[in-house]
Design a protein around this nucleic acid. Structure first.
Lengths: 343, 343
DNA sequence: CTGAAAGCGCTTACAG
DNA sequence: CTGAAAGCGCTTACAG
């Protein structure tokens, strides 16, 4: 069965195609009788307007592009959910791509987004230097929202959390509990999240008058395996840390695995605090104290920023910063070090 | 800056639009000199073909629709990754929707898919009775691949795991360890996965000559909260079970949370085996013994089925069944009940 | 191998 | 309020 087109509907309803189009788009007045005939015809023929044709003609799209840097990361479950909900509330669809932290894949997908003439792009950039590609898209008239990470030399709307403050709080919490050899497993300094979370660690130490010990700083890549490796390195050193702040969720899981394998108890032998909460953080071997990001809201706000930009392309660029908050569970050793009712 | 079109490229390269199109689509011979001029023009103008126009004219699309039933479920991290990888290897993009287990949302999204004229649809159906919508799409010429769950009265390609065998193995493993009051928290019988996993439980009991005790059977909805609730119900009964088989990942996490809150030790007080493995199952409070599905392969195979169907629309419909396997960790109590080197 | 022309299914000034 | 007509940016027989 071939698909019904607007012509079929027009014939069936004995009106012009223009009238069918007007009924469909609801923005101009159509006589009630004609409208009824058109609606009948649509149901009778099972008509679905061809969006490719509409997009071509109207030069506007109801598709949002979403480029994620690592679709395996649970962080994006909730972010994507937020984007999807907000988009579908506006009758917009989502094209989803996974750059896999790979600049080449990212470039390819940006070309796809351009070719699709998406209404706008929400992207978690894979690196902080792709200003060229992004600016190209911007010039092509596609609004861009940067999510989670910033990019040098590109002026666009941005939504992210206050990473520095989040890790400051996490590390400060450990300091308050009396830990003195606090290590960090942090992310790549190529990413703004990596920079900012590392900075929060340093600021907290500094504010407490504690020296920065380079032997206690390990740089990972935000993936599970590096958390696993680096936790081993830290614990196998001659002077291991008494606490570790891990800069994202996957590395925290990797670190936890390494500690378990070596029978190092958390928090008795070493305390652990992570960045990014997980829905199952409370059910982990050592329930994880973590900096929780409002991930769902991050996704929603990204769409809001996009809608705002679409409504007013010349509006000044906005950076929206959401606040993370520390969720205290057992892995930081709060029960060992303080009374349970401690503030 | 307005976008370059094929006309601009043609003028710049001093050839016809047809020639530009031929260079772009690589399927017919173009003189090397002309080709070079066209390629130069494309780079010079930063030209990206408009996919909406191509789709309209060529009546073919390089977009795959993916409708997921619950995007919050970690199960789909890996499935989506598999689909994405396989699709991008074929230069195809993904439109992602989340039906949220809601038949109305699902229907709406199926309409979107039809309107987008996607090349094909991969769907995890939200209920087993939407044959009407799916058959409509099928008639409209859009190939459908059912993932994970079957639907009544609709003949299409299907990819799923052997759910009955998976839960049979899980329950049989518990029986082999000597448990005698084995409860199950299973999913809705509206879903084939719910039916099949429940059936596997019953078959295993039956094969062992054990009676089915209805007090030990609880029906959830595959979401965390129901696992939490039903585990409480089971453990608060006058005769609680000595083991629980939970029919999916989220309910397993919920059950684990309930047990932790009540200080019920796993597996010492009650053993736990789940369906669906999680990347962090080994780092859970009680490392979870679980039936692991080949989720990534499920996603990839779904795309393969789709490509096969696209290549040969009249081919007989296929159901591909992948085998799950049991991963034994601590939560089933294997160490309590058997020597560590037991087979 | 190449170009002129038709047409995919819509939307939108334009005229009435 | 309604219809005839033009045109969005492509691809693809068709002719040469």
């Amino acid at each position: 069965m071939s698909k019904a087109t607007i012509n079929d509907v027009a014939k069936y309803a004995k009106v012009s195609r223009a009238t069918v189009s007007r009924v469909l788009n609801q923005n101009s007045k159509v006589d009630a009788k004609l409208r009824a005939r058109v609606l009948d015809a649509i149901t009778a023929l099972g008509y679905q307007p061809n969006r490719a044709a509409r997009r071509l003609r109207a030069q506007s799209s109801n598709v949002i592009g979403l480029v994620i840097s690592d679709i395996q990361n649970p962080y994006f479950l909730s972010v994507t959910r937020g984007v999807e909900d907000a988009a579908s509330a506006q009758q917009m669809s989502l094209i989803l791509c996974n750059s896999d932290e790979n600049p080449d894949k990212e470039r390819m997908y940006l070309q796809v987004m351009e070719a699709e003439r998406v209404a706008g792009l929400i992207i978690v950039p894979a690196h902080s230097d792709n200003s060229q590609d992004l600016n190209h898209l911007k010039k092509a008239g596609i609004p861009i929202i940067l999510l989670d990470r910033a990019v040098k030399d590109v002026q666009v709307d941005t939504i992210r959390v206050d990473n520095e403050r989040g890790s400051y709080e996490a590390v400060n919490h450990l300091i308050g509990l009396g830990y003195r050899r606090i290590a960090t497993i942090t992310g790549s300094l190529q990413l703004t999240t990596g920079q900012e979370r590392y900075q929060g660690y340093r600021t907290a130490l500094q504010a407490a008058g504690m020296p920065l010990n380079e032997a206690l700083v390990k740089f990972g890549d935000f993936k599970t395996e590096s958390g696993y490796q680096l936790a081993q390195e830290l614990m196998n050193a001659t002077e291991p840390p008494d606490a570790i702040f891990v800069a994202n969720n996957l590395m925290s899981l990797g670190a936890l695995r390494a500690l378990l394998e070596q029978n190092i108890r958390v928090p008795e032998n070493v305390a652990l605090v992570g960045f990014d909460d997980l829905p199952w953080s409370g059910e982990l071997y050592s329930p994880l104290t973590a900096v929780s990001q409002p991930t769902y809201e991050l996704g929603q706000e990204a769409v809001n920023l996009l809608l705002r930009r679409l409504a007013n392309p010349k509006a000044p660029y906005l950076t929206v910063v959401l606040q993370p908050h520390l969720i205290v569970r057992a892995s930081c050793g709060v029960k060992l070090r303080r009374p349970a009712n401690g503030s």
